[in-house]
Structures are given as C-alpha cells and as structure tokens.
Amino acid sequence: MTEYKQMTANGSPDDMFTAGPISESNFFEWEALIQGPKDTPFEGGVFVAKLTFPSDYPLSPFKMKFDPPLFHPNVYPDGTVCISILHTPGDDPTMYELSSERWSPVQSIEKVILSVVSMLAEPNLESGANIDCCKLYRDNKPEYERIVRESILEQLGL
C-alpha cells in the first residue's frame, strides 16, 4: 500500500533512472530503467530491472533483478542484484556485511537504485555474486570492460 505513495515520492528522479509499476493492477511488481553511469564501461547502456515487493514492504526489502542479466561482479548470473542495502539485518549471505549498510524501512526505491548505479561504477569484489566476473575484473580489467561494452552493444542490437 505504501508503494502508492512511493510511486509519487519517486516522481521526480534525475535522468539516471526511472521506475514505476508494470501494471496498474499490481503495485508489487515494478520495472526500473537504469542508465549506465558515465565514465564506466556501462556508459551508454540502458538496463531493465524488475523490482518485486514483499507484502510487508517497507519492513522487508524488495528484490531487484536485471532482465536480461547483467555481467557484473555483484549481479548473480540470473540477474539478481546482490547489494548490502537490499539485505535485512537478519539474513547474511556473505556473513560480514555491517548492519549499518543493511536494509531499513527508511530506505526508498530511489536510494537503492542510486546505490545500484554506484555499484555499477565500483563493483564490490569482496562479496561477489558472479565469481567468474569477479576474477576477470581483478585479473584482467580491460578484458572485463571490453566484455561489458560488447554486451551493451549486443543488448542495444548494434
């Protein structure tokens, strides 16, 4: 129910991203369009992410899934985003995140997407979700950047 308000609370995001419910009938499924941040390999790309809200939102965080999946160290191969701000203090998949970085009901969709954007620019290798990608990023960054650029071009149909 709060998403109603959220929708308008997020009514004026900057040009980096937009978000809104997929259909008028179901406010628990949102879609977000995110622009790749400048001066990163993701520049120029437009990424579609699906946001799924639990019924007790904002007590529990929503889930974010890139569709199609994104090649990034902190994105699972199926597209799900792994970021500490979307984890409740209770569950800890990587066992070392500070509780201060975790989800709290005062977070908003806007804040989460902003941190996802900054995550695109600066991957957190310590809690990698896509291990292959992590290795590639650490050992051969130019190659990683090349793959990312290529996937963006492919996605845009170029």
């Binding site: 709060t2 109603y4 308000k5 959220q6 929708m7 308008t8 609370a9 009514g11 004026s12 904002p58 009901p105 005062v106 908003s108």
Partner: peptide, 29 residues
C-alpha cells in the same frame, strides 16, 4: 489523492523541503 513533496515546483526548494520534513521516513506520508 496522493500527495508528495514534488507537488511543489522545483523552483521553490524551500517548500519542497518543508513538505518533505513533515513526512514519516518509513511510509513517506
């Protein structure tokens, strides 16, 4: 029926801030 701080024009940031300050951070109402 849903109100939000951006009802006020962005050219008047003080009013937007006033509106935002009177809202609960959890439910945004």
């Amino acid at each position: 029926d849903i109100t939000d701080p951006t009802d006020f024009p962005a050219s008047l940031p003080s009013l937007v801030a006033l509106d935002a300050a009177l809202r609960c951070a959890v439910c945004k109402d």
